[in-house]
């Protein structure tokens, strides 16, 4: 088997030297894959993505255990800009654009790494995928709507010409129609540019429709993972993330118990 693009192994992150946000999280993204992370609020999804993309010292968060390998190189506790240079970009959950810079400037501040294989500049590519942004070029990013902002954030992430793009809360603030378009573009981006994608998404149905593989996080641990198709059909996912009531209602506690035992016994 080849080396996966990104391999996270038994990761543990501690905030402020006291709060353990995630523990023993392992996940893999192979070249050309779209991988989804699911989980309720506070499960540790954002923490996982931010650990991969590098905390800034300001945050007082540290990776205390485990390894993050990107193309076989260690990324733990590296400064964020270095991680971006290696080809790993993130679209964060909050504060995703520079509000006082125009749309064009938001894209221009990114240091150039390279263009695409067919000689187009990254700017052209981005405007091709998000034509709406081309219309708004001169607008200040702080004046964009939430959805436009999300597009700009993804576009800026693409400007870094990454090999792997991390997206936190993909559909945050987007109209359902826009979500549909966006997910299509993402698949296209993956197919045309060969960019792998690791995304966090609240809506399991949206995420699993485009993803190849999925992980479910709960209380800072991976409780379930598998092929997207398999997860879509999984009873727990059906019940807790897709809202289809299962046959027999079990209490939350029973479910946890059941999950835990399944994790231990395979």
């Amino acid at each position: 088997m080849t080396v996966p693009l990104l391999a996270v192994d038994k990761l543990e992150v501690v905030y402020q030297r006291a709060i353990t946000a995630i523990q023993g999280v392992s996940l893999k993204v192979s070249e050309g894959q779209i991988v989804a992370i699911l989980g309720t609020n506070g499960a540790g999804k954002t923490t996982t993505l931010r650990a991969i993309s590098g905390f800034l010292g300001l945050d007082d968060a540290r990776v205390t255990e485990g390894t993050i390998l990107f193309r076989g190189a260690h990324l733990e506790n590296r400064p964020p800009h270095e991680i971006t240079w290696r080809g790993l970009a993130i679209v964060p959950e909050r504060d995703k654009v520079f509000p006082n810079l125009s749309v064009a400037e938001n894209l221009a501040v990114v240091p150039r790494r390279r263009g695409t294989a067919d000689g187009r500049s990254m700017e052209e590519v981005v405007y091709h995928f998000f034509p709406r942004l081309a219309e708004l070029k001169r607008r200040e990013a702080g004046l964009l709507s939430g959805g436009e902002r999300q597009m700009l954030a993804i576009a800026s992430g693409l400007m870094c010409a990454p090999d792997l793009l991390l997206i936190d809360e993909l559909s945050l603030g987007l109209a359902p129609v826009a979500v549909g378009k966006l997910t299509e573009s993402l698949v296209q981006i993956r197919d045309e540019l060969g960019i792998s994608i690791l995304l966090v998404e609240q809506s399991a149905s949206v995420a699993l429709r485009i993803a190849d593989y999925g992980y479910v996080l709960e209380n800072g641990r991976v409780v379930l993972d598998g092929d997207a198709q398999r997860l879509l059909g999984h009873a727990d996912i059906q019940e807790f993330y897709l809202g289809h009531a299962g046959g027999s209602r079990r209490s939350y506690r029973d479910v946890k118990q059941y999950r835990r035992s399944r994790r231990w016994y395979g």
């Binding site: 993309s53 590098g54 800034l56 300001l58 945050d59 400064p79 964020p80 800009h81 971006t84 240079w85 970009a89 993130i90 964060p92 504060d95 995703k96 654009v97 520079f98 509000p99 006082n100 810079l101 400037e105 938001n106 221009a108 501040v109 990114v110 240091p111 790494r113 800026s156 400007m159 870094c160």
Partner: peptide, 24 residues
């Protein structure tokens, strides 16, 4: 200027600037 823009960006949101590959 490209570096001028980067200075403005870093002033607004240093973490995001770093995540966009700007060397703070």
């Amino acid at each position: 200027g490209r570096w001028g823009m980067r200075m403005r960006a870093a002033g607004q949101d240093p973490l995001l600037a770093a995540q966009r590959g700007i060397n703070l």
